[in-house]
Structure formats: structure tokens, C-alpha cells
Design a protein around this nucleic acid. Sequence first.
DNA 1: CACCAAATGGTTGTGCACAACTAGATTGGG
DNA 2: CCCAATCTAGTTGTGCACAACCATTTGGTG
Lengths: 140, 140
Amino acid sequence: MRTSTALDDMICFQLYAASRGMTALYRRLLDPHQLTYPQYLVLRVLWHDGPTTVGDLGRALELDSGTLSPLLKRLETQGRIRRERGAHDERVVWIHLTADGTTLQDQIGDLTQRLVCATGLTLDELTQLHHLLSRARGRV
Amino acid sequence: MRTSTALDDMICFQLYAASRGMTALYRRLLDPHQLTYPQYLVLRVLWHDGPTTVGDLGRALELDSGTLSPLLKRLETQGRIRRERGAHDERVVWIHLTADGTTLQDQIGDLTQRLVCATGLTLDELTQLHHLLSRARGRV
DNA sequence: CACCAAATGGTTGTGCACAACTAGATTGGG
DNA sequence: CCCAATCTAGTTGTGCACAACCATTTGGTG
């Protein structure tokens, strides 16, 4: 496979910088709610799927317990979630939304629209980007 | 602007996950050299541009002094770089490669080829990805 | 039953990222 | 000349990310 070396390295750096830029945009929108982007991702899974185990969150977000455990502890301290050992299997910890955590979904509303508009990409370009990132991630 | 909400959020997550996946690939290649990906980026700037100030590194990599100062301290401890206050302007700190830091470039060799092959993207797709990330980053 | 391998989440240690702040040097206006 | 605004790094504090390791629980198997 023939590739342009300079381009490749630029892509890696751009991926790295674009990801940080994206979380910076989210920071502006999430700060008022006392949330970080990874915390927001955890809440999105809970809003969508209901009670979930730590392991399932890890598989969904590709994060391990070393990242999730302290993050979930902070969300629990803030009163957004509740942690509970499984009844049948005491190894498992189930994560439940509290009333506060549930209402947060409506309070935050639709961040997506505002974010994507900021990039100025068209729907076509977004679809392409989605496709390319999927392909790149799939192999790795 | 009309967009598909589900797609947008997936793109943000994919950007986030792809960036972490990419640094994970670099980790495997850089660990033998006792380097992290951000440290490698700093060295690349030094290899390419020669002696550089902390501020210039920050502008090149879009990182602030809170990130760079400890990182550069670690690189100095490892003997890869040297820090030196500017002669004319004592506010500025110049970063120089040591002999070790210079030879590291040849020892590491071309990581790019191995990385990009891992993704399985064609040159066309890489060009598209580069273009889309540039456009997205440009506006933000 | 006793024992062992796998599963599950937690803990520890290191290294980014970034906001907020500090300290010192420099520069320009009065 | 003098001082206030600005520039440049560094420091502190919080929160990811991840490797390495650990404790508990579980489900088999002999």
C-alpha cells in the first residue's frame, strides 16, 4: 500500500486535535450543568438503555473500570445516579438514574444541533466522516 | 441546517473513540522508546524545526503551558531535551534537543506506515478524512 | 465438599488536558 | 523615568485514560 507519509501524520494529529476541540465545545455547553463530556456519555447510555452494569457501560463507551469507577463515584456524589450490587450476582454493580439524573435529560436538551452547526459541515460531509471513522475504527 | 441527530452524536463519540484508539496504537509503538504520544509530537516539532520556545510548541500542538511544562520536564529528566532561558528575553524558555533526543528520530524510524496500514484505509479515504477534519477544525 | 479458573469491579500510579492563578520580565504611554 | 498593561512560563487543582494489580464472587470439576 502506497501512502503519503506527511499526510498520515497530519491525520493522526488532526484526529487528536479535533477530538480535543470537540470536547472543548461540549465543555461550554455542559459546564452549566456541572457535567464533563465522559459523564454526559454515561448519562446518555443510561437515558437510552435504563439501568446498566459497569461492565456494559465499559463495553458501550470503550472505557475500563479504572476510568469508570471514579467517574461514577462523582456522578453518585452529585446525586445523578445510584450504585447497587446485583442481587443474584454480587460481583455486578448496577447503575440507576436518580430522579435528578432523569430530569437532567430535558434540562440539557439538544446539544447536538448547536455542536454540529459550529463545525459548518454539511449533512453529506457528516455522513462521509461517519463512514470513514467507522472504517478506521473497525479494523483497530 | 437540516441534520440527523443520531448521526451527529455518533460522530462526536466516534471522534472521541477514534482518537483514543489511535493513541493506543501509538502506545504500542512508542512504549519501547519510553515515550507517550504527546511527547512524540513535541519531539517531531523539534526534529523538524530545531530549537523552539514553549509558546511556539503550544501554538503548534494547541496545548497550553499547564500541559507542556510538566511534559517537557519529564523529557528533560529523560535526557532527551534541554531547557534554557532566552538571552534577550528572559520570559522565554527555549527547548533544545540533546544528542539522545536527536538520535531518537532514527531509532524510532517510520511509525506512520505501520499505523496507517492498521486502519486499512486507502489513500483516497485518507485524503477525504484529512479534508473533512480540516474543515471541521477550521471553523472551531 | 474442596479447589480452581474466570468474571467483575475497585485501587494505585503515571501522564495528559485544561481552567485559574501566580511570578517575573518586557513594553509602551505619560 | 515610571508605572500599568501585557507577555511568557510555571503552579495548582480537578478530571479523565489506562496499565497493572487486587479482592470478591461465581461456576465448575474432581
